Simulated scan of single mutants.
Amino acid sequence: MKGVLLVNLGSPDSPTPKDVKPYLDEFLMDERVIDVPNWLRNIIVRGIILRTRPKKSAEAYKKIWWEEGSPLVVISERFTDKVKEHTKMPVALGMRYGSMTIKNGLQELKDKGVDEVLLVPLYPQYAMSSFETVVVKTMEEKEQHFPEMKITTLQAFYKNEDYLKVLSNSIAKSLEGFNYDHILFSYHGIPERHIKKSDPTKFHCKIDGSCCATNSVAHNTCYRHQCYETTKRVTALLGIPEDKISVSFQSRLPNDPWLKPYTDFEFERFPKEGKKNLAVITPAFVADCLETLEEIAMEGKEQFTEAGGVEYKHIPCLNTDENWVAVMADWVNNWEKDGSLPS
């Protein structure tokens, strides 16, 4: 029997330091997030970051926390429920980090008689710290607890036409009546070395402004390329002039080169260039979370206006958009019918 496991990032159980600390520990101790030797990762995470970060992060979570719980979890649950309405297969939800585990999601499917699973990492682009870690963790759980299960993975869908149309239509709707000077596509940041580590050729990715435009098998696992390609295709669908858009990356750690340009630097730069009305979209996420709701919608607006910006608009993620639900339902139903997956 076939079933579907949707997987997103995860969240602490509450916006308190007590619950944020173990969540951050699990997240930051992931070798695909902070990819240094374990002894050094222990020093960085448990010896430095976890001494102060839980309190600060808890305060950020409090700003965006809903009555029902974490926005990311609540939105993901609502999305899962809507997908269930459009398919006869069992559909479960798991999170890479936190108490809503991938193991629990697989167990839920097994209890319903499922022995063949379509794994859907809810990330449009491939990155070792998001998409890859979900797949690796799921396979580890399968080998340890569900050896009889067959698992098929839905690949990163950043260039799928149906997804791009839904994303573009959502952006267009949000932009109605907003007289923007510029649109910023802000993506989750990752260390530059992750790009090179994910390059199967070990020589193509140079992060030099040209390799992303040169065709290569490396693009299948190149987060930077896929971010720029997402932006390029959405911009074309919306008919927006190229000089009206740009790409940036957020959420970096200090003393380490991450993908540039940095989003917060762009917020300060735009007003000085006369770009006073700014719209910001975050296409690395399909569901709004701490990074979009606090870092971009709140802190980003404050940074932009303090630098002289006038109008600032945060464009929501797809969340539970009915058209997005319909696209996902088509993908999973096509897989159930004949094993086909979107390209």
Rank of each mutant, 00 (worst) to 15 (best):
L9I: 12
E302M: 05
M1N: 00
A92I: 02
T235D: 01
E68A: 03
E192I: 02
V325S: 04
G47A: 09
L24H: 09
K159E: 08
I48A: 12
D81G: 09
P147K: 02
V327H: 04
H145W: 06
H145I: 00
T153A: 06
E85Y: 04
E31L: 14
K110S: 00
N215Y: 14
M95R: 11
V134N: 13
K197I: 06
I102G: 10
P15F: 10
S170H: 11
F249G: 05
L164N: 07
E68P: 02
E229F: 03
V286Q: 02
A92L: 03
P191H: 15
E291Y: 11
L259R: 07
T153G: 05
K197W: 12
I315S: 07
Y126C: 07
P54H: 07
P54I: 10
T263A: 10
P22R: 12
Y97H: 15
P71C: 12
V83G: 04
R32V: 10
A287V: 05
K197V: 04
A287R: 07
V166I: 10
S340Q: 10
I151H: 01
A329Q: 08
L237W: 01
P12S: 12
D321A: 02
E302V: 02
E108I: 01
L175P: 05
Y312A: 04
G177V: 00
Y228H: 14
N255I: 06
T138L: 02
T152C: 01
D208Q: 07
Q107I: 00
E229Y: 04
G309V: 04
K159I: 01
G308F: 03
G10Y: 13
S186P: 14
G239E: 11
L278C: 07
V74S: 10
T292N: 07
S210K: 15
W324V: 04
T52P: 05
E273M: 13
G339N: 02
I34A: 08
K196H: 10
W66P: 02
T16K: 12
A329C: 04
